[in-house]
Design a protein around this nucleic acid. Structure first.
Lengths: 244, 244
DNA sequence: CTGATATACTGATCCGTGTTAGCCAGTTTA
DNA sequence: TAAACTGGCTAACACGGATCAGTATATCAG
C-alpha cells in the first residue's frame, strides 16, 4: 500500500543529499539511474541482521526502516529510524558487518547507493553519516532525561525536520506510517502510555494525528520546559552543514 | 592526582588499537612518539564545545572523558564515555564540527593521534569508530528498555570490557573515577537511586566498589533476566573484529 | 456472514524511580 | 579551629508510567 508520490522515485534522495552538499548534474543523474533498479519490501520484516555481512550501501527511496535491538524476554528497542532519502551505510566502513538488525516498519523501496566518484556525493554521504550520529546522540538524551510528553514532542519535531529535508513533509504536517506501539518501542514507553500522552497533546492543541498524517500546531518546538542548550549540537551543526 | 601507571603513557592506546588491527613496529613507534607531547587536563572541565571546530583527532592516554548534553533547566545527560586508549574523531570527517560537547570527568591526558599512513592504524581507527557506534546503540537500548539495576549491570560490564581491551582492567576489577552522580547522569537516573541500586547489588554479592575500584563478582554478566538477543550486535561484531 | 487479528483507546491499580530532606565523614578554604 | 563543601548514604513520601484487563472498530480470511 505504498503511496508512491507523483514525483520520481529518487526525488527524496536528490532533495536530501542535494541539501547536504551541492551535487553535479552527473551525480543527480546517477541517483536517478540507481533508482531504476528498486527493491520493493512488503510488510514488516527484518532486512539485515546484526552481525551478518552487509550488502553495499543502500538508498532508502520510500517507506520507513528501523534499527532494532531485541531482548530475549520480548522487550524491543527501536534504536533509530531510517526515512526516505536516508543512506544506509556503515560507520567505519572497514568491515561489512552490520552493527544492528534493520527491520522494515512499513512497505519500503530501496536501491543501491551510487558510488561517490565526485566530491558532491562524497560530501553528501559524509554529511549524512555525521547527521546519523547526531540523531543517535539526540535519541540518548531523549531517553535519558526527557518525560514521555517531551520525548514525543522532540521526536516528532526531529522526524518533521528530517522528512522536510527529503521533501516529504509540508511546513507543519507529514505522513506517519508507524503504529503507536512502534513509537513506544522507539521512545522507551508502553503503547498504553504513548496513547495517553498523545491524547494529552491533542487536548493541548499542539497535535493532530489522523489517518496516517501528523500535523504539528505551532507551539510544538516552543513548549518544552527544559530544552537542549543553545550551544547544543544540532543547530550549530546543521547550520554549518547547510551553509556549506 | 593521576595514578600514572608504571607502563609507558601510550600503553593503553597500543594495547587497544593493537587488538583492533595488527600494527607494524613503525606504527607502534608512531603511537609512542605521539605520546611524548601529552596535554594534561586537571579536574572536570569542558574540553570541546558542540558546534565549534574540532582540533584534529586525539588519543586519550589517561583519565575518562564524557560526551555531554546539557538542558537549560539543569538536567544533564552523559551521552557516551571516552576511556584510555580511545580515539576522539568525527564520524563523517568532512567538516571539523564537534557534534557534542566533550567534558573531562577526571584528570586526563591527551595527545594528537598519529596520522594513519599505513593500513594497520587506518583499520584500527575505523574499527574504533565502528565500536563507538556500537556503544551508542547499546546505550540507547539500555536507557530505553532496561531497569535501573540492569542498566548499571550492563554498563559496568561494558566498561570492564573496554578497559580490559586497553589493558587497564584485571579479569574482574577495574578503576572507577566517577562519582555516583556522574553515573546517574549517564544512566538516566538520580544519584539517590543509583546509590540504592548499588546497595542492592552489594547485598546480592555481585559488586564491590570501594576507593575508586570496582570488582564484579561472577554472576554479573549472567544475571539479567532479559538479555540482548544472541544474534545481537556486539558479540558477533567483536568476534569479527578480533578474529581479523 | 463468522471468526481472527490488529490497532486505538480507556480505567483501575501497582511499582519503580524521583523528590525532598536530611546525616555523616573527609577535605578544602578561611 | 571553624566553616563550607563534596560525595556516599538513608528514609518518607509523591508521582509518572507500567501492568492488567478490558471495549470498540476496522480489516481480512474463509
Amino acid at each position: 500500500m505504498l503511496k508512491t508520490p507523483p514525483q520520481a522515485a529518487d526525488a527524496c534522495a536528490s532533495s536530501r543529499l542535494g541539501a547536504l552538499a551541492s551535487l553535479s548534474d552527473a551525480e543527480r543523474l546517477a541517483l536517478r539511474q540507481a533508482a531504476e533498479f528498486p527493491q520493493r519490501i512488503r510488510g514488516t520484516r527484518d532486512l539485515i541482521l546484526a552481525g551478518q555481512r552487509t550488502p553495499g550501501p543502500l538508498l532508502l527511496l520510500d517507506g520507513w526502516l528501523g534499527r532494532v535491538q531485541l531482548f530475549s524476554d520480548g522487550r524491543r528497542q527501536i534504536l533509530s529510524f531510517l526515512l526516505p532519502g536516508d543512506v544506509i551505510q556503515d560507520a567505519g566502513t572497514f568491515q561489512p558487518i552490520a552493527p544492528s538488525t534493520i527491520t522494515a516498519l512499513s512497505d519500503a523501496v530501496l536501491c543501491p547507493a551510487p558510488a561517490a566518484e565526485a566530491t558532491g556525493l562524497r560530501e553528501a554521504y559524509a554529511a549524512s553519516a555525521a547527521l546519523d550520529e547526531i540523531y543517535l546522540l539526540r535519541q540518548i538524551a531523549r531517553l535519558g532525561r526527557m518525560s514521555a510528553y517531551e520525548r514525543i514532542q522532540d521526536w516528532l519535531s526531529e522526524i518533521h525536520e528530517r522528512l522536510f529535508l527529503a521533501g516529504r513533509a509540508g511546513p507543519e504536517s507529514f505522513p506517519m506510517p508507524l503504529t503507536q506501539e512502534m513509537l513506544a518501542d522507539a521512545l522507551g514507553l508502553t503503547s498504553v502510555h504513548v496513547n495517553r500522552t498523545l491524547q494529552a497533546m491533542r487536548r493541548d492543541g499542539i497535535l493532530e494525528w489522523r489517518g496516517g498524517t501528523v500535523r504539528l500546531l505551532g507551539a510544538v518546538t516552543e513548549t518544552a520546559r527544559g530544552r537542549p542548550m543553545p550551544e547544543a549540537a544540532i543547530p550549530a551543526f546543521r547550520k554549518a552543514l547547510l551553509a556549506g
